[in-house]
Write a protein that binds this DNA or RNA. Structure first.
Lengths: 224, 224
DNA sequence: TTTGATTGGTAACATTTGTTACGGATTATA
DNA sequence: TATAATCCGTAACAAATGTTACCAATCAAA
């Protein structure tokens, strides 16, 4: 259970000891529901009127089109709020179908209860805001990578944003990095090889260094 | 002044008449600052410790690299909060430089004041949440477009998400749509032409209809 | 050790996209 | 109306990326 569980109960008011919390009116009203494998937890287009927290299990989200074809998006493991960000949006409907991949448990908290709780409990509010802010940051970071034109530019952006004194370490496999930046694995592999060949970086088994910073910058400007 | 000004003063508590608001302790402490054209309002990496609201003028944001080259991102017109979403993030630093394009006025509200105000005034909180939620929705919609592989897939996704009974209307020029989905204008133009040629859509001066839904779906699945 | 699975580098070729340049159409401006 | 500016369709070519396939290296399980 990470920061996300801030969203569950006011146990999240970490600022105070658990014992003290019990005394506060910090319990949030909610309902619980269980889902079996392959059941639909939410349908695309459903109004998001409640905060939907996945507290046990794993789900798959997919876009569904009018003709019935589906397009898998992400898998999400508990604990995680589903579409928390959209709870307050104007067009607050689920952007995807949500399907249980295994036995799942979900709790629902009404929007009103969430608002009340936020007003009542600063810790809860902070937890909610933090979660949304971090998610926003992740997504906007990814968008910036996608906005870079050319694989090398994407790679350069990715590496520059996490190098320390020229050294970097991939926190994922090359294959998953390819997925993350939206290109094919062999293409990414080729791009890295060429950057090594051109003396811009070194790279071996997940670790490397940036040799030529100027060349990296140049890649950002124009996909070369 | 749109919804954004919800974030300014508690005049935003629209739920109550203005006269009544005066009586509440709904004034939020803030400081004001003016900037001249070309002045820096914020530097990339600056900690976001206060809510920064642009209330007059226009700014440009750009990514700056260590070697000094810049990469322009977006232009933003008042009224608009700058990096509101990052106020609560863990790594809460400005992702970009912010430069005044013209005479600008900015107000600063401390994070603490924002938190207090949210606790005190439900309207303010709702305004803040709404704004962030909507921004999140926009950005994630854009990310989904970028995640589509192939120009036609991007176009199909874009059109399918806004067609009504098969009819669609672009709310922007072809050139700006090209920028939005991250491709070159001639490439987008060609893609549209081919889709028209193949009898998938009609298109003329910003308006069109989807003729072959199945083909549109197929484009989403595999960039064809 | 052997086996099988995963990871990732590479190559040849197909396909898509970018680039550059041109011209027609439309709109704003003098 | 003339003039310039913008928008956008088109084409030919260059460049980047995807596709498919193969093999080597690594690692875990038998």
């Amino acid at each position: 259970m990470e920061k996300q569980d801030l969203l569950f109960f006011c146990t999240l008011c970490r600022e105070k000891p658990a014992a003290e919390i019990e005394k506060l009116q910090c319990t949030i009203s909610h309902t619980v529901k269980n889902f079996k494998r392959d059941e639909y937890i939410a349908y695309q287009g459903d109004k998001v009127t409640r905060l939907v927290m996945l507290i046990r299990g794993k789900v798959r989200t997919e876009i569904v089109s009018s003709s019935g074809l589906t397009l898998p998006m992400n898998d999400i493991s508990a604990p995680f709020p589903l579409a928390a960000a959209f709870l307050f949006a104007d067009d607050n409907s689920f952007p995807v179908d949500v399907i249980a991949l295994e036995e799942c448990e979900v709790i629902y908290i009404s929007k009103e209860a969430v608002e009340k709780q936020m007003a009542k409990c600063a810790g809860f509010m902070r937890g909610f805001m933090d979660f949304n802010a971090n998610q926003m940051q992740n997504i906007s970071e990814r968008l910036k990578i996608f906005a870079q034109k050319g694989i090398k530019a994407k790679v350069a952006y990715y590496l520059l944003s996490r190098e320390k004194k020229g050294a970097f370490e991939l926190d994922r496999s090359v294959a998953s990095l390819a997925g993350y930046i939206g290109v094919e694995r062999p293409s990414l592999s080729r791009a890295i090889s060429e950057m090594v060949r051109d003396g811009i970086i070194t790279f071996h088994s997940g670790k490397g260094t940036i040799i030529n910073f100027d060349a990296m910058e140049a890649l950002l400007i124009r996909g070369a």
